[in-house]
């Protein structure tokens, strides 16, 4: 967040919360900030909030939180317009930051999928790919996760209010496991875990329940996914099974994507339409 951007933001900034291709779960996380909602409304002029109200504003906004990936030609145009009019654009969630689970179609035959799902595929205008917002426009900050973490969201909004850089570390999930005293599930054999290559922010939720991280926050900085994939393959796991581990909500994010490619693509793409 640059000083120039900050300087253009009013004392009670106009906030818009919008969505593209997504399940709305991240917006629900915002609604779930129940104890803080009134405080937030004092500090932010919440002009538009897709999940909470059908009211649509023509803008402009000081800050826009965007949920969802770009999945249709219309969305691809819309995000360019929003970016042009918005000083501070923040993407929220795995769809907006990595393309989401729907980005698995990027490996598949788009027309075949459309024909398998819809009775009249010709009515459905979708792009062959689902891509993160940052593939289309510059993004000022991003909140990862499927869904986003309420703590990180509050930290972002607090930082915007106070005027400091949000503390959103790009380290591995492992640090949080260790800080909270969770024993490594990968080492004890309680399952494969993407935590070492995954962006922190969830508070290391899954390993605390004795299951591996499935990477919903996407790759972290310097994510050495190939090394972890090699390790997964060591104890007899097939390439397809290793690829499946990376083929989740953030499969299309680059280091995960290339690992999946090197292992022959996400297993789902090789199935027939009915199986998928």
């Amino acid at each position: 967040m640059t000083g120039a951007v900050r300087a253009t933001i009013a004392s009670r900034p106009r906030l818009g919360i919008m969505k593209f291709a997504s399940c709305d779960g991240c917006q629900l996380t915002i609604l779930d900030l129940e104890d803080h909602l009134l405080d937030l409304l004092v500090r932010f002029d919440l002009v538009e909030f897709a999940e909470a109200s059908s009211y649509r504003s023509s803008g402009p906004f000081d800050i826009v939180l965007v949920e969802g990936s770009i999945s249709t030609p219309e969305q691809a145009e819309e995000i360019v317009r929003i970016r042009r009019e918005t000083p501070l654009l923040v993407t929220i969630g795995a769809c907006a930051t990595a393309g989401g689970i729907q980005a698995l179609r990027n490996w598949a035959d788009h027309d075949a999928y459309r024909a398998a799902v819809y009775a009249h595929p010709e009515y459905v205008e979708s792009l062959a790919t689902s891509t993160p917002i940052s593939d289309h426009v510059a993004v000022d900050a991003e909140l990862r996760g499927c869904p986003i973490d309420p703590g990180q969201l509050l930290e972002l909004l607090t930082a915007l209010t106070v005027g400091r850089r949000p503390q959103l570390p790009d380290e591995s999930v492992c640090l949080e496991c260790k800080r909270r005293g969770t024993v490594c599930v990968l080492v004890t054999g309680n399952g494969p875990c993407l935590g070492p290559v995954t962006h922190t922010g969830c508070g290391a939720l899954c390993p605390a329940y004795a299951r591996g991280c499935y990477g919903c926050f996407g790759p972290r900085e310097a994510a050495n996914a190939p090394s972890l994939a090699r390790w997964f393959g060591r104890d007899g796991r097939s390439d397809a099974d290793t690829a499946r581990l990376f083929s989740g909500f953030t499969a299309y994010a680059p280091p995960f994507r290339s690992v999946i490619d090197s292992l022959g693509g996400p297993p789902i793409a090789s199935h027939s339409g009915e199986d998928a």
Binding site: P196, N224, S227, L228
Partner: peptide, 11 residues
């Protein structure tokens, strides 16, 4: 090439 820089060793 192998190190994940995940920080487990240090923690």
């Amino acid at each position: 090439e192998r190190c994940l820089a995940c920080a487990n060793c240090t923690l």
